[in-house]
Amino acid sequence: MLTNIVRSRFFQWLLFWGASFWLTLQIFSQTETIRMLDLIYVCLFHIPMIFAVHAHDQVLFKRLLLDRKFIGYGVSFFFLLGATYFIYLFSFNDLSVWIFPDYYFVALYEPIEIIGFSLVYIFVFQMIDIARNWFAQQQDIARLAQLEEENKKAELKALRSQVNPHFLFNSLNAIYSEALKKTDKAPNMILQLSDLLRYVLDQIGSDRAPLKDEIDYLSNYVEMQLMRLNDPSRITFKVDGKPGDLQIAPLLLINFVENCFKHADLQSDEGFIHIHISIQDNTLKFSAENSIPVNMYSQNQLRAGTGIENSKKRLELAYPNKFGLELSSDDLIFKTNLYMELT
């Protein structure tokens, strides 16, 4: 509540005129002590100044100058200065006699002097008001940016939380398939899945993860998938370049890898999956190709997967203007090409 009072326009006006009253009282006082005459004189002096400042701010500046009505502003400003001088005369010649009959003021300022005072007050007040508005605008912009950043983090967190069940569902389907065949691969795949889930749980709340750990995670996932294949040679996973200290949004690439295994035609002799990751400087390039079963998946169906849409949204949020993604299919081959600028 105190903050709202301090930021209120009325409080700032009181502060400005309070400072002006104290300063002019020090200037106009002719003795070491402040007399009642000095207080009355300063009060009367401020009446025309208050009129000039607020008439200019509320009418001339906001309704004419800001609307680029320059001629109207110039004419009105001229009349404002004249009206200010007449109010000054009224304050000292008429108002003072009516309110303070026991006091008489001899020395009055000339018109040019009152106009000079008015110009100084108008200029100082308007500059302070412009600065105040600018700082308030910057604070609003900062609050809006902070709100957008918080919304962005919340959306990213929600998208990351979708990776875990999606990944788990696909992996359990693979293990279930091996269990139905009553092979010895299922127990090993469960252990492999346990290690993968440990990484998922460690990174699900993180904004960034070491690129090296992310690549190891993808490699372990591919190895788990290879366990259920009779001909693992049709699957290739290649990494060129060194991750170094590069960081990446965690669990971002797994959806593209999962998509390959989900839609690839690995039952036919021509079925294949080729995944290639290239690292050069701060740029990561991810490319993947997989065969498509005849008359089973159309290009539109492949693009509409939950995992791919999840990754697209995360890329847009985490790497705005720093990534490129192309999905295409031809000759029964689905292709994914992604590049990202990492830090």
Results as ranks from 00 to 15, higher is better:
D202K: 14
S268F: 03
A288V: 06
S194K: 12
R160E: 12
V53N: 01
F286K: 08
E149T: 10
N133L: 14
T336V: 07
W13Q: 14
R198H: 06
G72W: 03
L197Q: 10
L327Q: 06
I279S: 05
L64P: 11
E214Q: 08
P243D: 05
A158L: 11
K212I: 14
F92I: 06
N310R: 02
F79V: 01
L39H: 02
V106Q: 08
I115F: 13
M189L: 00
V42Q: 03
L325D: 10
S29A: 12
D231F: 15
M189W: 07
L14T: 04
I5F: 14
N170D: 03
S206N: 15
L251R: 06
P320A: 10
Y41V: 04
V257P: 08
F125H: 06
V106T: 02
Y319V: 02
D129Q: 04
A209W: 03
V59M: 12
F334V: 01
N282K: 05
F16L: 13
A142Q: 06
E155I: 12
L315W: 14
D38F: 13
L25S: 04
F61I: 07
L80T: 03
A154Y: 09
R7L: 00
I190Y: 11
S233N: 03
G82C: 09
N164L: 15
S298P: 02
S287Y: 05
P165I: 07
K69C: 07
L119A: 01
I99C: 03
I27V: 08
Q126L: 01
N4V: 01
V239T: 09
S291R: 09
P101Y: 08
G74L: 15
D129V: 00
R208M: 15
K185E: 12
L65P: 09
I128D: 05
L39V: 14
F272R: 07
R198W: 15
R68M: 01
R228I: 03
D281A: 06
D202M: 15
Y104H: 09
T283F: 14
K62D: 02
K313E: 00
D207N: 15
E326T: 05
F70Q: 08
D94K: 11
N170C: 02
P48G: 07
P111L: 04
D213E: 15
Q280Y: 12
N173H: 11
R160G: 10
N310S: 11
P243L: 02
I122G: 05
D140S: 14
L23N: 05
Q280H: 15
L89V: 05
F125N: 12
L252Q: 00
E258Q: 04
C43Y: 15
G244E: 00
K322D: 08
T306S: 13
I99H: 01
S219R: 04
L218P: 07
E223F: 10
S29E: 01
H263P: 12
C43W: 15
M227S: 02
K335Q: 11
Y104L: 00
D184W: 13
